[in-house]
Amino acid sequence: MRILSWAYLALMFAFILLPVAVLVVFSFQDGRLPVPPFKGPTLEWYAKVLADRDLMAALGNSMLVALASSAVSVLLGFLAAAGFARARLPGSALLRGLIIAPMTVSYLIIGLGLLQAVNWIGLRPSLMATGIGHVVINLPLCFAILAASIGAPQQSALRAARDLGAGERQVLSLVLAPMIAPSLAAAFFLSFTFSWDEFIIAFLLTRFDVTLPVEIWSMLRSGLSPETNAVGALVFLVSVLVVVTLELLLFRKAAK
């Protein structure tokens, strides 16, 4: 049993890590094709990536869309969560359901609906439209996380603040927001990650200014190239750094 367990673990790790390992190794390929045999390490492809204007522009666009759409998602989710905690609204189960609903629908379908709406109103596909789409997919998530973090202790603190004469705006910004700050951060971080990596909505809703996943997609059309490997390896590196940092921060906190 013991040997079997370790063998299975090794096999699965190989399966899970193989594609990433191949991606990274052949990003250093000194040749035109990222396939064996491996010819000497070179940083040529990384230099090419960093000098690629389209890629860098796409990177900036992705950053912009992810930051803006996550900020809007967290803000709207926060207000809605505070609202539902404030008083029982008529039909509140239905209204909550409406906010959560986009979670159950494929991104492709959300993107297709928005594309038709955009065409219908006579707007052009743009980064703005993509950002709107990303708020649609991330708002349910933010709302769910933040609504779950407002419990009885938060409720009574809010009541106390109101009894002591705080205005509604003060209650939200000086009492509720600091109390659920970790959840706000988690909601923002998750939204950012999803928006950053989202492809299909951005693909449908952008034309000339594209986001990073769409730019990488268009690189794929020209076939396998170590340059694509290098972009992929860089994206991977950044994600791993973020995850490891979070892990260390959270782990350290949990250990305390």
Binding site: A80, G83, R86, L89, V135
Partner: peptide, 28 residues
């Protein structure tokens, strides 16, 4: 008053979902 405040807070999220999810979905 409480209800009005609650509705006011939830309104932006509801309107957003209505305008950019439900209506496009209906159009589809």
């Amino acid at each position: 008053t409480e209800r009005r405040q609650a509705a006011g807070l939830a309104a932006p999220a509801l309107l957003w979902t209505l305008a950019f999810f439900l209506l496009p979905f209906g159009a589809m």
